[in-house]
């Protein structure tokens, strides 16, 4: 479901196209041991790119590399043409503020209410008045259908609400790109479907670019314009394309296994 060529968005009203994120020969790992190497791909403006693969293949590590949270062993990541790897601390912080990131656990601050969590980036980085910041935070919560939960504490929220509050917080500073790490993990199918709908709705209404790490097949087919599949053994990308193409046309047995939900060896 690619966007039309001239789709105007909040973040890119002129509708110009071109990669908003470019991953160039990235190798990333722990210590000197690469988990992934020689990764090359672009994320187009306004698209929803899904990174998928089996557990432990490095999806979340790649996300950390793309957001500048983990320094790669080699290669580069360009955000809107600027390197987040080589950037000085001030530039890196500026580039990171342009990325809205949500984490597997939601990472809401436990001592702040939902409204205060969403308002937090505005409190820290802008000089907007308190009443206006509250209005912005309330509108974001309304957008993710959490208007009724603004006074609740994170400990009182369900898994789906935590993820949605995390998305609202990630949007607060006007991020161009939202990066979601396993947003539907641990959620029931209905809540996960609602979250997928929220993601699609945000893209349609505000034109966000999404990079979503997930291995939930239902989510992948619902939201993804394009998917890249990582593999632990080959430490790289083994497939790239639309989810339907990967499922129907890929000759790689690992891709077929993943999309057909089959283990290595069928039970006797």
């Amino acid at each position: 479901m690619p966007l039309p060529e001239s789709c105007p968005t909040a973040t890119n009203p002129s509708g110009t196209r071109g990669p908003i994120v470019s991953v160039r020969g990235l190798a990333i790992g722990y210590g000197s041991q690469p988990i992934l190497e020689d990764l090359w791909f672009d994320v187009e403006r306004g698209e929803i790119l899904v990174i998928l693969g089996e557990s432990g293949c490095g999806k979340s590590t790649l996300m950390k590399g793309m957001t500048g949270l983990q320094r790669p062993l080699s290669g580069d990541v360009l955000i809107d043409g600027e390197s987040i790897v080589m950037a000085d601390p001030a530039t890196k912080a500026r580039l990171q503020r342009g990325l809205g990131i949500t984490y597997q656990s939601g990472a809401l601050f436990g001592s702040l209410s939902v409204l205060e969590n969403v308002r937090f980036p505005l409190d820290e980085f802008t000089r907007i008045g308190l009443r206006q910041r509250n209005l912005i935070a309330r509108m974001l919560l309304h957008l993710v259908e959490l208007g009724h939960a603004e006074t609740m504490m994170p400990a009182e929220l369900s898994g789906g609400m935590i993820k949605r509050a995390g998305i609202a917080r990630a949007m607060a500073l006007g991020a161009d790109i939202l990066m979601l790490d396993e947003p539907s993990a641990g959620l029931d199918p209905i809540t996960a479907a609602n979250l997928d709908r929220t993601i699609l709705d945000l893209r349609r209404r505000l034109g966000f670019t999404f990079v979503v790490v997930t291995h939930e097949l239902q989510s992948i087919f619902t939201i993804a314009d394009r998917a890249i599949m990582l593999d632990a053994e080959s430490r790289g990308i083994i497939a790239m394309g639309s989810p339907a193409d990967l499922r129907d046309r890929s000759q790689d047995p690992r891709v077929r296994q993943f999309f057909n939900h089959r283990p290595d060896t069928p039970p006797a």
Binding site: A10, T11, S14, T126, Q132, L135, M139, M171, G174
Partner: peptide, 14 residues
Amino acid sequence: LKRIDDTGIAFLYE
């Protein structure tokens, strides 16, 4: 005006 984000939307809304 060519570019707004969530804060700009809130401003125009208000």
